[in-house]
Simulated scan of single mutants.
Amino acid sequence: MKHLSTLTATTLLSLSLAGGAIAADMKPEEQILTRQAGYKFMSWNMGKIKANLEGNYNQEVVEKAAAAIAGIANSGMGALYGPGTDKAVNGVETRVKPELFTNQKEVGKVAGDFVAAANNMAEVATKGDKAETKQAFGALGQSCKACHDQFRQD
Rank of each mutant, 00 (worst) to 15 (best):
V96N: 03
I32Q: 06
A131R: 04
D113E: 12
D149N: 04
L7P: 07
A37Q: 07
D25I: 10
K27T: 15
C144T: 00
E106N: 05
F41C: 15
K87A: 12
E60R: 08
R95E: 11
G141I: 01
G19D: 00
Q104H: 14
Y81K: 07
P83Y: 14
A70V: 11
A65H: 05
M42E: 11
N103E: 13
F114A: 00
I69C: 06
E132N: 09
A111G: 11
D113R: 08
A116T: 15
I69D: 06
I69G: 04
V89C: 04
K134V: 04
G112V: 08
F41T: 09
C147W: 01
F114R: 01
L12W: 02
G38H: 09
A111C: 05
T10H: 05
Q135C: 03
Q150R: 09
I32R: 07
Y57T: 08
Q31T: 01
V124G: 05
A18K: 06
Q150H: 06
E123I: 06
A21E: 10
S43T: 10
T6D: 10
G138E: 07
M121Y: 08
V115R: 02
V107M: 03
S43M: 14
K40L: 15
G112E: 02
T8Y: 09
K50C: 13
A68Y: 07
V124I: 08
E123H: 05
K50D: 14
L100T: 11
P83N: 12
G138F: 01
T34V: 03
P83A: 14
T85D: 07
A88F: 07
G141K: 01
A111T: 06
V61P: 12
Q36C: 08
G20Y: 00
A136E: 00
M121K: 08
I72G: 03
R95Y: 15
A125H: 04
A146K: 01
N52F: 13
M26Y: 11
K87Y: 03
F41D: 14
R35L: 09
N90Q: 12
S43W: 08
A122H: 03
S16I: 14
A21N: 15
G141V: 03
T126V: 14
T85H: 03
M42R: 10
T10M: 13
A117K: 13
A79C: 02
M77K: 08
E123A: 15
A116H: 09
T94N: 00
Q150M: 10
